[in-house]
Design a protein around this nucleic acid. Structure first.
Lengths: 361, 361
DNA sequence: ATGAAAGCGCTAACAC
DNA sequence: GTGTTAGCGCTTTCAT
C-alpha cells in the first residue's frame, strides 16, 4: 500500500499551545460537553481552532470513546430505484442528528452482505439499516447480541425478535390495490410475483386474497403466478425481465384475467412490456397495477397505476426510531414500523363499469 | 450520545497471550507484512485468532499508520440513475483491491459537498471520486494540495491540473448521435439542454456542431435550446421535468426541427413526454436521441435511441488508475480518461430517407 | 526470529 | 475552572 504521511496535520496539542491551555480544555470545548469552561478561555480556543484550521482526528476519538456516530446501510444495488428513497430518508435524518451514513451494496450476494455487516461491527457503527438477501439471520443476530441496534427493511428470514422491522404496510397496500381494481369492475385478477420467499411478498398476496374474499370473489393458489427462480445477480433490470417472463406465463394460463397485480413497479413495467410485445393492449385488454411508485412508473406508457409505499417516509421514521433507541440505550425489542400506503391512480387500469354502461346505452 | 461500551471485545493482546507471543508478532502476521515469522509461531497465532474470533480494530491501525484504505465517493443523488453504474464500477474495483468504498450524496448542495470532502480529508481516505455540483474547486484543490488523490467525473469548474478527469468522450458521443440522425435523413436538428454551465455539456454541443459542419448542415447558437435555470434540489425527476419544459420551448421556435438531441436520457424522456403531451408524435413528427443509456431508456415508449456512455467502465477504469497512482505515490498530474461511446439504436428516431423513397415510388 | 516499548490523537478520570 | 495523565488498540522502531 503506502507509507504513512503525516503531512503537517494540526492536532489538538497545537491548538492547546496556541490558546495557552491544556488539551483537556480544548477537548471539552470541542466535544461540546456541558463541562464548564470560562467564556474567555473558550473564545481563545475557538479562535485558535479557527486560526489553525484545526479539525479533530475522528479516529483518536473513536479509539478512545469506542463510539462511532455513524449509521451503516446495506442495500442490494444502487441500480434498484426501490431503495433510493429509503436511503435518502435515512440519510436525511442521520445527518440531521449528527450521524454519518455509510452505504454499501451487497449485489444480492449473501456472503458479501455478511462481510459488510461484520465489517460494520468492527467499525463500531451505531446502527445498522439492512435490506437483506441472506436466508439466515445469524450474523445480524450476532450483531444485535453484541449490543448493536438494527433495523431490517427487507429479508428472507422472519422478523427478528430484537430488531426494528420497518416497511410499508404491505397487506394494506395489496388490499387497496385489489379493492381499486374491484371498484373498476374487475373480477378475474391474478397476482404476479417472483418466488414467495419473503414475508413482505406473502403479505401482499394475503392482502389481495383478503380483499377478494371480502367481495365474494374467487382467488385461489392458481391465481398467484410465479416464476420458480430468482436471479442471483441484481443488474437493476432483473425485476423488469422477470415481469416480461411473468406476463408470458400469465397469458398461457387457462383463466382469462382482466387485471393483474404485480409485486412491484419494476416488475409491473416488465409485465406491460411483455404484454405489449404479445399484442395485448394495456389497459384495454388487461389492466396492471404495481407497488412502490418509483419514478419510472409515471414515465412508461401507459402511466402505471400503483400503490405508493413511501420509502422515504419509512426510511425517515425508522431512522428516528433506531437512533432514539440507541441513544436511550434501549435494547432492541421487536418493534414494527409500518407506513400507510396510498393509491396513485394513473392510466394502466381500465374502468370496466364505464365500458359496460356505454355498451348498455 | 452514549457512554463507551467495551463489551468484551477481543484485542490483539488477547491473541498474543493465547498464542504465547508478543503483540508485535501478532501484528506482523496479521498485517501480512513480509516480515519473517517462524511457520510454527505463525500457525499458533492464526489458530488463536480463529479460536478467539479476533478481528483487528481498524481505528487503532488507522490512528497509528495514518492511512485509511478507503475510497470516498460523492454523487449528487441516489435517485439519479446516471450515477449508479459509475458507483458500481468504482465499488467493484475498490473492493477487489482492498479498499472500502464510502458513498455520499450531496443532494446538489455545494456546501454539503464541501462538508463531505472536508469530512473525508479528516477521515484520511485514500482517494476521492467526485461528481461535483460546486462552482468552485477550492476544496478539492485543497484536498489535492495536502497530498490527496482525486478523480473528477463531473463538475462546473474546469478540469483540474492535478486530478484524474474521467468521463466518456462527450464530443465523440455527440458526433455519433448527430451523424446517426444525419444518416437517417435529418437536417434540422436542435440540441436541448439545461444551462451550458459545465464543460461536459459544452463538449456535447461542440460535437454536434462539428458533425453538422462536416456535412455542410446549418447549426447555429439558435439551435441550442436551453432553459435558464437549474433546480437546486435533485429530487431525481428534475431532469425529466426540465425535458418537458424544453420540449414546449422547442415547439415555440420559429424553425421546424425534425430531430432533437437531448443532453441526456432522463431529459430525453421528459422531452418525449412533453412532445406527446402537446400532440406531437415521436418519432413520426420529431425524432429524439439521448445520452447515457440508462435502464429507463428502453422502458419508455418509444424506446429511446441513445449513445451509451458506459458509466460502469468509466468508473472501473478511473478507479484502477487512481489507485495505481495512489499506491505508487505519483502525485496527480492532469490525466484524462475518456471511454468510447457507442450508439444504441432503438425506436425514437425516424428514417426520413425511407419515407422519401416510399413517397417517390 | 522475537519482544519491549514508544507513541498515533484523543478523552475522561482525577487532582488541584 | 483548569491541568495532568493514563490509556483506547494498533504498528513499528530498536534491541536482542
Amino acid at each position: 500500500m503506502k507509507q504513512p504521511n503525516r503531512c503537517g496535520k494540526i492536532v489538538i496539542n497545537d491548538v492547546a499551545k496556541t490558546a495557552q491551555c491544556s488539551t483537556a480544555t480544548v477537548s471539552r470545548v470541542l466535544s461540546n460537553s456541558d463541562y464548564p469552561v470560562s467564556d474567555e478561555l473558550r473564545q481563545r480556543i475557538l479562535d485558535a481552532v479557527q486560526k489553525l484550521g484545526y479539525s479533530p482526528n475522528p479516529y483518536g476519538r473513536i479509539l478512545r470513546t469506542n463510539i462511532n456516530p455513524s449509521i451503516g446501510i446495506i442495500i442490494t444495488s444502487f441500480q434498484n430505484p426501490f431503495f433510493s428513497p429509503i436511503v435518502m430518508g435515512i440519510e436525511h435524518i442521520a445527518s440531521k442528528r449528527g450521524y454519518t451514513p455509510m452505504v454499501f451494496a451487497s449485489q444480492r450476494d449473501p456472503s458479501l452482505e455478511r462481510k459488510y455487516i461484520r465489517d460494520m461491527m468492527n467499525k463500531r457503527i451505531s446502527c445498522l439499516m439492512l435490506c437483506s438477501v441472506d436466508d439466515h439471520s445469524d450474523v445480524v443476530e450476532q450483531y444485535i447480541a453484541k449490543g448493536g441496534h438494527a433495523c431490517v427493511f427487507e429479508s428472507n428470514f422472519p422478523p427478528l425478535g430484537s430488531a426494528l422491522n420497518a416497511s410499508a404496510d404491505m397487506f394494506k397496500a395489496a388490499q387497496i390495490a385489489t379493492e381499486y381494481l374491484i371498484s373498476q369492475g374487475h373480477q378475474q385478477i391474478a397476482f404476479l410475483t417472483p418466488p414467495l420467499s419473503r414475508s413482505s411478498r406473502h403479505q401482499r398476496v394475503d392482502g389481495c386474497r383478503f380483499a377478494m374474499a371480502m367481495h365474494g370473489l374467487e382467488f385461489g393458489a392458481d391465481d398467484v403466478i410465479s416464476v420458480p427462480y430468482e436471479n442471483d445477480v441484481d443488474e437493476g433490470l432483473y425485476e423488469y425481465n422477470i415481469g416480461m417472463v411473468l406476463a408470458k406465463k400469465m397469458l398461457l394460463h387457462s383463466k382469462q384475467y382482466t387485471a393483474v397485480i404485480a409485486l412491484n413497479d419494476l416488475i409491473a413495467c416488465g409485465i406491460i412490456a411483455g404484454l405489449v410485445q404479445s399484442g395485448v393492449r394495456v389497459p384495454e385488454d388487461i389492466s396492471v397495477v404495481g407497488f412502490d411508485d418509483i419514478p419510472i412508473a409515471m414515465m412508461v406508457t401507459p402511466q402505471l397505476t400503483t400503490v405508493r409505499l413511501s420509502g422515504y417516509l419509512v426510511g425517515q421514521r425508522a431512522t428516528q426510531m433506531i437512533i432514539d433507541a440507541y441513544e436511550s440505550n434501549e435494547s432492541g425489542n421487536q418493534v414494527t414500523l409500518s407506513v400507510a400506503p396510498v393509491l396513485v391512480a394513473r392510466n394502466s387500469v381500465a374502468n370496466l363499469k364505464d365500458v359496460r354502461q356505454s355498451i348498455r346505452i
